[in-house]
Amino acid sequence: MDVSFALTGKGYVLVAADTTAAHSIIKVKSDVDKIKELSPHLLMAYSGEPGDTVQFAEYIERNIRLYQIRNTYGLRPQSAASWIRRSLAESLRSRHPYSVNLLLGGYDVSTYTPHLYWVDYLGTLAEVPFAAHGYGSYFALSLLDRYHDPEASLEEGIATLRRCIDEVAKRLVVSPGKYLVKVVDKDGTRVIEI
């Protein structure tokens, strides 16, 4: 029942994910952080099979860090996305595939451009202006088709994100109560209160 969306704007990517952890019909936590800060300029929102999600996210997090330690420079968003995709694609045809869906938001410090990647558990990778996973996608994508602007300021971007969150709260039966929103831009990653 995870809900996550992300959108790009002028020089930033906004990533939002709900904060609930559920076991069947029971909410066991309401302050879970499902958006990992993989590097100073890379965010990853993850959702899917409980257990797989954290295991896979931490595996990615440690390996992205390892690459940076070994090579001094970290992977750029495009390269990180490509490597993460391949990890999922290889896992798909293994004995126990991960069922994890991702949204990767990054800021490329060498070209000064924001990048957003939609990745699913099959290893499907697509660079998109906005994206969503879970039941939220059925509401958010149509809203974003109408309101998304790649040149929008951060304030405008947050307002658009608010619309998505409000619409899900209004129309989705099992809507989550709280969201965590993070942004990545030239200054790095940070949490945004909405």
Partner: peptide, 13 residues
């Protein structure tokens, strides 16, 4: 087009 079943994800794949 890139979709998942009937849901369209990307128009630039």
């Amino acid at each position: 087009r890139l979709g998942v079943q009937s849901l369209s994800i990307s128009s630039n794949f």
